[in-house]
Design a protein around this nucleic acid. Sequence first.
DNA 1: GTCTATAACGGGATAGAC
DNA 2: GTCTATCCCGTTATAGAC
Lengths: 206, 206
Amino acid sequence: MKEKENGDTENKIKEVAKRLFIERGFEATKTRDIAKEAGVNIALLNYYFRSKEKLFEKIFEESVNQYLHILVSILNEELPLETKIRKFVSNYIEAIRQEPHLTLFVLSEMRYRKSTVMERIFVPEIKSTQTLKQQLESEAAAGNIRPMNHHQFELCIASMVSFPFIAKPITMAIGEMNELDFDRFIEDRKTIIADMMWAYLTCKNQ
Amino acid sequence: MKEKENGDTENKIKEVAKRLFIERGFEATKTRDIAKEAGVNIALLNYYFRSKEKLFEKIFEESVNQYLHILVSILNEELPLETKIRKFVSNYIEAIRQEPHLTLFVLSEMRYRKSTVMERIFVPEIKSTQTLKQQLESEAAAGNIRPMNHHQFELCIASMVSFPFIAKPITMAIGEMNELDFDRFIEDRKTIIADMMWAYLTCKNQ
DNA sequence: GTCTATAACGGGATAGAC
DNA sequence: GTCTATCCCGTTATAGAC
């Protein structure tokens, strides 16, 4: 009876599969590679998950959930607007740093796979975030900031935070950066992005 | 002798292949699909391009070039900074509208294919764009704008412009948009993005 | 649960006729 | 140049022993 120290083969497979899927995408990931790196046989993948497709769907759904929890949790906190923006940008960046390939993975798989994940999970979860919207509206009504569509607002932040990671090879090549330079570049961005959003909302000299 | 009205089979193949590669990526695009949609046989692909790999490389290189010409041409024009920003954002958005899948295609293929395209073409082309950099520096020296690293500046614009297209399905779902709504949303962004960049650069009340 | 062996299939590439 | 037929490999999935 073979018994790995911590037992669970199923999790080992899923863990490896997740890493490979995220790095390479669905098509480029071969079941053989997953099995090999997990130290088991292909037959086991099918024993636990029935098919490559099913295994992928499970992982994709988990990834989307993981990605969402990064975002949503912060948005509903009770904080003054400027503080919230700064905290959100900073946490968002840190979260992506933990799993830098996740964004591009989700976006590229989303494009030609008509997964039901989006309607089932993504949209409901995101729409639960109404606090920020109300905050923008009331601050604008009070004349403290300029009025702004909250979707535009959110998309600006999401863009500026995640794009450098999505386009990391290009960013690094153009700026002639090494890994350390890139980290510093991203660190600087925390302030820049928050300042920029805040400048736009509050700037008087238009 | 079969002669199509406009002759060139080779171009027909390349055209179809380009569309499919851009829509689906390298791995998910099958030579059989290309041949079928081009109305020819697989043997012809290899006759003209030797292999799927070679065909792809050619198309990928062309796509990168196409993408770059969108960007670089505007950046070197002699225009006042604010005008240049507004024109750049607007033209960039229009260019992406012509080929909305191109950005995600280039970025996702870039990630796990160690193509030589980037070092050979991308970097030299982008680095030819020094005008904007100098402009930012001299305006800052004159006290007209706040000092800002030009890579950060460029990346902010590129992010906010291209991200909504990369994440189009998500953007549309969250905002409950149809195609027309999305177009309007993007149209609004032209002003928002330019205003935001300009507000950041010139805002006094920090 | 885990393995070996093998079935079943799909996909890229080529030979050779026209 | 363009086709048909075919090869051959890699990949997914399953049967069946342990």
